[in-house]
Amino acid sequence: MDIRKTKEFIGFGVLKLAAVIVLLALFTILYFVAVRGIKVINWEFLTQMPRSGMTAGGILPAILGTFYLTICAICFALPLGVAAAIYLTEYAKQGRLVRIIRIGINNLAGVPSVVFGLFGLAVFVKFCGFGISILSGGLTLGILILPTIIRASEEALMVVPRSFREASLALGATKWQTISKVVLPNAVSGMLTGSILGIGRAAGETAPILFTAVTFYSVRLPRSVFSEVQALPYHIYALMTEGTHPEAQIPIAYGAALVLVSLVLGIDLIAIIIRNRFRRRKKW
């Protein structure tokens, strides 16, 4: 066989193998969690309070807790992140200051999540006096996903063609009118996609809420943003490390894991659907 063809064959083979391994890893995890988790999942499991010292009953408080924490994180991080991205790409003079801010944001993305947890404990729980609560945990998660949202939004803003901005400005629009009426509507899909992926991450994180929001067991469902909550990731962790009835707790942990994974994949799916819908509409 021609030596060039052999080389091509090997090259493609290696690349294909890499792709297959990635997929395999994902499906192994999903399969593993699904097989072990599916046994305990039923309507009761999703809608009941835990019973008998977490060895029986459902995981409703943990599902709700994760939901509340994520909502709180979005409400905080989305407006802030989008606003920061608009400032950085549209208004700020591209110079040293903006470069430093960008480096800062990128580094924020690299900070280990447990450090965010400690930060949240020091600032939101103690200094602001929010206590161990949905608010403290949500804000901490919000800061965690801020870099993702800012970067996704910046990229979405930058791909809006300059010709749109010029057309708007040439008609006597102010900069703000141009941004709010022309640039943002055309960037919104990209912003949403990136942000939703960030939200998926927020839902799955354990460390940032460890010291700021969660409790292993609460008698009642949370009543306000100042309540402490149960959350899925921490619930799994606690079931596997605490308590004295592993044979009863481990299946529940897998059930909770399956719910969490489905939740995150579901959120990602929504991101994909939104992106596709907008992509079909835009033609530039």
């Binding site: 010709s163 010029e166 057309a167 040439a170 008609l171 006597g172 629009a173 009426k181 509409r281 835009k282």
Partner: peptide, 30 residues
């Protein structure tokens, strides 16, 4: 100034909106 001095560009650059909205844009912002 830009309202008094209009401009048509090298490459046509309509907004990805309806024909009506494209022409209405300048009126609405003003």
């Amino acid at each position: 100034i830009r309202r008094m001095v209009g401009m048509v560009f090298q490459r046509s650059n309509p907004f990805p909106k309806s024909i009506f909205e494209n022409v209405a844009y300048g009126l609405k912002i003003n």
